[in-house]
Design a protein around this nucleic acid. Structure first.
Length: 574
RNA sequence: GCGCCCGUAGCUCAGCUGGAUAGAGCAGCGGAUUUCUAAUCCGCUGGUCGCAGGUUCGAGUCCUGCCGGGCGUGCCA
């Protein structure tokens, strides 16, 4: 829409001697009123005029100044309407030119964004806590990449910590009792759960576990180190299989263990900055002076017994990332439960006087809950909801739907995969991040309403029209478009023109839901238009068909580009 | 106790960093020459935007207080 907003804003600026930067255009509440609107309230106040009067004066002054655009005063607003032919030609033209790149820009060229996402713990399959981080993070990676940022996605694997002591002991004792061949990760999960219980109930087990972790931390080669390495390896193999299904690949896979060498220097650096103190035997950074809300919750960097903590490790990682990437933004896609933790981290940076503190952001999100807002427990695996199980279930259901609706389809498996995953991913991205996701199986599996499959289906219908046009050699393929045929498609065209703005804003706010909501609304508009018998494409007079084909092509591209940015496949058929 | 977040139709959510009569989907009801894919489309029903004040020409949106729910809260991650 820039081709239209720019001249309008420039003209307004000329008329009022107000800089373009402080003028903004809105969309009218009702699309029938116009394509763009300018509210005159603020300007009227400055000029000491009544808003409706100013609107009339400006509208009159702009008459004729903008070729193809009419300005009409309506109360305190000026509504702009772009001549339909011009609108259709410009919008479909730009989309056709940009193709798969439409929606992106080069605003991020030369800048780096670090995104910490997914970050599962080894010895456990990817479960409930990592699903949202994985899906939201992967969407953000794609969105930023479309804006030509250099994106460094980091998988901060949880591969360190006291719990491994327990796991090692469990492996020693019960290795033979579980199946570690067929699916090692599920076998390890079993052992992990048993070890957790044993640590609580069995003193001898606990002592052995602590000894094992000390052995691991010492860095010595030996049985413990070997076991840890093996666990890491099979876990990563399992994660990678899941990532492949989701089309995800991190640029860097660095577990917590990778940052071990950075721990001592990081601690020294904080101490040297003079912001630490010893309190109740622990090394802390008091944060009350930089963040009033943190008066009573300092950041603990070292336990009384000298060992480091979660915050210490994350701080070390953060220092290392800043040195390595000089990032524009560093995003942590981590659940809202950890808000305090990231606030503390930023607090420490602030106390150290590090200006890049503002570039570190906690991209938080709500819980994934079951129907009735309860924690999801899987009947199959106790407390753990395994992502792979979830995917299988949804894909199976999609396959069933295909058998029922479109049994002739050639590539049922691929489409079922796309639709099942689309449903799952879209469901996670359609609300604001911060909101809890209610995972209602029945709702997701219905594939109806505000869903990924709905957007995909709209895309497939458009693809079908284009296929048939090609197959039949429709007259519209080679004709000059008669743009008057798109007189009634103004809303769709304006919406198509907005994709670049939506992508930019979704990136700025690290909020993929803005894009999903946009796609839903667009799919609805497109469906309405394409379903109307008045808008039939094939077999219409050549010029009319050509114009409608251009719209269909543009809409298909925009829906497809948008879906791909979210991490969802746009099927040609379904 | 303290800190942070959420509270819009029966349910799940939009509402574009204050602006024109509050919008979708689901559920319910009624329709659509056997369809350029009906996984669709059209119509109807449904709201004191948690409550009370305040700021403003204008508040679902900002401020204060209260109510309800969630998350977190010094040696776990």
């Amino acid at each position: 829409m820039q081709v239209f907003t720019e001249p309008i804003l420039a003209a307004l600026a000329r008329q009022t001697s107000v800089p373009v930067a402080s003028l903004k255009l809105e969309r009218p509440r009702d699309a029938k009123q116009g394509d763009l609107a300018f509210p005159c309230f603020v300007l009227a106040k400055e000029l000491k005029k009544a808003p409706p009067l100013l609107a009339q004066e400006l509208a009159a002054a702009l008459a004729g100044a903008l070729p193809g655009i009419t300005a009409v005063a309506s109360g305190p607003y000026i509504n702009f309407r772009i001549e339909r032919g011009l609108l259709a030609r410009e919008i479909t033209g730009q989309i056709a030119r940009d193709g798969q790149r439409y929606g992106g820009s080069s605003e991020g060229a030369g800048k780096t964004i670090v995104i910490d996402y997914s970050s599962p713990n080894i010895a456990k399959p990817m479960h409930i806590g990592h699903i949202r981080s994985t899906i939201i993070g992967a969407a953000l990676v794609r969105i930023f990449r479309a804006l030509e940022y250099r994106v460094v996605g980091i998988n901060h694997i949880g591969d360190w910590g006291a719990q491994f002591g327990g796991l090692v002991v469990a492996l020693r004792r019960w290795k033979g009792e579980v199946d570690l061949e067929a699916d090692p990760v599920l076998g390890l999960l079993d052992l992990y759960q048993r070890s957790k219980k044993a640590v609580e109930e069995d003193e001898a087990f606990k002592a052995e576990a602590i000894a094992a972790y000390q052995e691991l931390e010492s860095g010595r080669e030996g049985e413990v180190r070997e076991l840890w390495r093996w666990v890491t390896e099979v876990s990563l193999r399992g994660f990678n299989a899941t990532y492949r299904r989701l089309g995800i690949q991190h640029e860097l896979v660095r577990g917590e263990s990778w940052y071990e060498p950075f721990l001592a220097p990081a601690l020294e650096r904080v101490k040297a900055a003079g912001v630490t103190e010893v309190s109740r035997g622990a090394l802390i950074v008091a944060l009350g002076e930089v963040d009033k809300g943190l008066k009573e919750t300092p950041c603990l960097l070292q336990q009384t017994n000298g060992t480091t903590l979660y915050a210490t490790r994350d701080l070390a990682a953060l220092f290392s990332r800043w040195e390595e990437f000089q990032f524009e933004r560093c995003l942590y896609v981590v659940g809202g439960e950890q808000k305090l933790h990231f606030r503390q981290l930023k607090g420490v940076l602030a106390r150290m006087g590090l200006a890049w503190e503002a570039r570190v952001e906690h991209v938080d999100f709500g819980l994934l809950l079951g129907r009735g807002r309860v924690k999801i427990a899987s009947r199959k695996r106790g407390e753990v909801l395994v992502l792979d199980d979830l995917i299988d279930e949804v894909v199976d259901e999609a396959l069933g739907t295909i058998e029922a609706k479109n049994p002739e389809l050639a590539s049922k498996r691929e489409v079922a995969d796309a639709v099942g995953l689309g449903a799952l991913v879209f469901n996670d991205l359609k609300r604001e991040r911060i909101k809890d996701v209610i995972f209602d199986k029945a709702e997701i599996l219905s594939f109806e309403g505000d869903t990924g499959p709905y957007v995909q289906y709209t895309h497939a219908r458009l693809a079908s029209i284009l296929r048939k046009a090609e197959a039949s050699g429709d007259a519209g393929l080679s004709a000059t478009p008669d743009w008057s045929a798109l007189e009634n498609a103004g809303e769709v065209l304006v919406a198509l023109g907005r994709l670049p703005d939506v992508v930019r804003s979704a990136a700025a706010r690290a909020e993929p839901s803005e894009l999903s909501q946009y796609l839903l609304a667009l799919a609805r508009d497109v469906s309405t238009w394409v379903s109307s018998p008045d808008n039939r494409v094939l077999g219409s007079p050549a010029g009319v068909a050509a114009a409608r084909l251009a719209l269909v092509r543009a809409a298909k591209l925009v829906l497809g580009n948008g879906l791909r940015l979210l991490g969802i496949t746009a099927p040609e058929e379904m």
